[in-house]
Simulated scan of single mutants.
Amino acid sequence: MLAFIGKAFVPYRTIEVGASYVRYIKTKTIPFPNSTEKNSLTVSYLTESCGLSLDKASSASRLVKIRNTEKPDSVLRFLHSQGFAKHDIVTLISKQPRFLVASLEKTLRPKIEFFQSLGMGGEDLTKIFCANDRILKSSLENQIIPFIDFLKGIVGTNENVVITLRHSSRVFNAQFVKVMMPNISNLREQGVPEGHIRRLMMCYPRSLMFRVDLFEEAVNEVKAMGFDPARKSFVWAVRTKTCMSKANWEKKKELLLGYGWSEGEFQSAFVLQPNLMATSDRKIMKVMDFLLTIVGLNPLDVAVYPNIFLCSLEGRLIPRWSLLKILMSEGLIKHADLGCAFIVNNNYFEKKYVIEYEKNAPEIIKAYQDGTRFKGLVADCKT
């Protein structure tokens, strides 16, 4: 049968070969339709009317077929009327080309107007539709509104709902009845204040999308480490545990222990600052190398101030160390608690080390205030 694919029959003829007669069928190949020609309307519409590049239009044409322009024209007019800029439409159609052929009155208008009623617009609105093809497929009445009502019951206001969706628009992919509700109930049973649960939902909603049994395991581990459920650090520790695999946790822990921390120092540092373990390996190594090699702190000094790992090396640690080093070398200060000096806020640091000495070392202080940051010293300090 395969021999006949793509062939057209013509009358056969017989030839004589020796004592035998052989009949053969004369065939000719009929070309298949060119897929580019077939999609020419779709591609040209995506490039000319929607503003997509040829590459993006070709890719999008695999997911949507435009046979006439009436429906997509009405969709584009509606998007423009709702304040969608050209780049918003390019982003939206590139990621969700089926948007163009969705029903305007039954699907698009009600959903977009619903999200706008929450106070969402511009890039936030584009982002939520780009990130979730399920929004187009989900029922507004039966799925989207119940989820938003649930979310609002946790975070309190429409403004906070928008903040939550901005932090993780994929929260729509969560099974909020089967997963998020049980996880929130778990936190409440532990005695976690509603304000801390609200903060976790708004900043890291993906933590509450964690599988129920694994979420419970993470909560139990955090409690075993000595975290108090009544303190904000408890939910940040839960967030860190749910966002890391056990293998990555152990790898990062071994990295810190490799710099001389004991098991107890690691445990204490994590309790003081749970976001320590959310810091990248590269950042940990750069900060540790700077503090131990350049500044001369010992591992215990660093463990006592784990907030240091959340500070910018180039933006805070190096400039402050440069200033403190010169003040000490000039004899203007005899000693400074360097760990504390690195983590205090700018107002406190400048009051204690800048304003205090601006008369005695005006050039040094001016360099710090102007942001020149002692460029030679900074180069020496970088690792």
Rank of each mutant, 00 (worst) to 15 (best):
C243T: 14
Q96L: 06
L292S: 07
P97R: 01
F374T: 03
N132M: 14
I30S: 06
A237I: 04
G83W: 03
F309Q: 07
M277L: 15
K178H: 14
A60I: 01
T27Y: 10
P146V: 11
R134E: 10
T47S: 02
V171I: 15
L300Y: 07
Y21L: 14
T91V: 02
H196F: 11
E141R: 12
N275D: 15
E113T: 06
K28M: 14
T293E: 15
L313W: 00
M181T: 15
R282A: 14
C50V: 15
V161D: 04
S245H: 08
V354H: 07
R282Q: 14
R62Q: 10
I343R: 05
V75E: 01
I89P: 02
S20K: 09
I163V: 13
S58D: 10
F227Q: 11
N298R: 12
S94W: 01
D88T: 00
E37F: 12
L257V: 04
Q267D: 12
F266K: 06
D301Q: 05
F290R: 03
R211P: 01
Q143F: 02
I93E: 00
H87T: 13
Q190F: 03
L324E: 03
M209F: 10
K359Y: 05
L256Y: 11
K252C: 02
R320M: 05
K127Q: 13
P274M: 10
Q267L: 10
V162E: 04
S44F: 01
R198V: 08
A85C: 02
E113L: 09
F99W: 00
M201F: 10
S245K: 09
R134L: 11
K334E: 06
T107I: 14
G226T: 14
L63Q: 05
A336V: 15
I284H: 15
R211A: 14
D337E: 14
H335T: 13
S40C: 07
F270E: 07
A102E: 11
R373G: 03
K56G: 06
C50I: 12
P193D: 10
R166W: 04
F309L: 13
A102C: 11
D55H: 04
Y259H: 15
I25A: 12
N34K: 03
K26E: 10
Q96P: 11
K56L: 05
K7D: 02
S44W: 00
R77A: 06
S20G: 04
T164N: 05
S207F: 01
L52Q: 01
E141M: 05
K28A: 12
N346E: 12
L257W: 04
G226F: 12
Q116A: 02
E363Y: 03
N183E: 09
E189D: 13
N183Y: 04
R188T: 13
E194D: 14
L165G: 03
I163E: 06
S185C: 06
D133W: 01
K359M: 07
E216P: 00
P72D: 01
G260T: 09
S81F: 00
P319E: 04
D73I: 02
P11L: 02
P205N: 13
K127G: 08
N248Q: 07
A218M: 08
A60V: 07
I294Y: 00
I184K: 05
A379C: 05
L310S: 09
L272D: 11
S262Q: 13
I163T: 08
R62T: 08
F32S: 06
S322N: 08
K26M: 04
L104V: 13
Q273I: 00
K26F: 03
K334I: 00
Y204C: 08
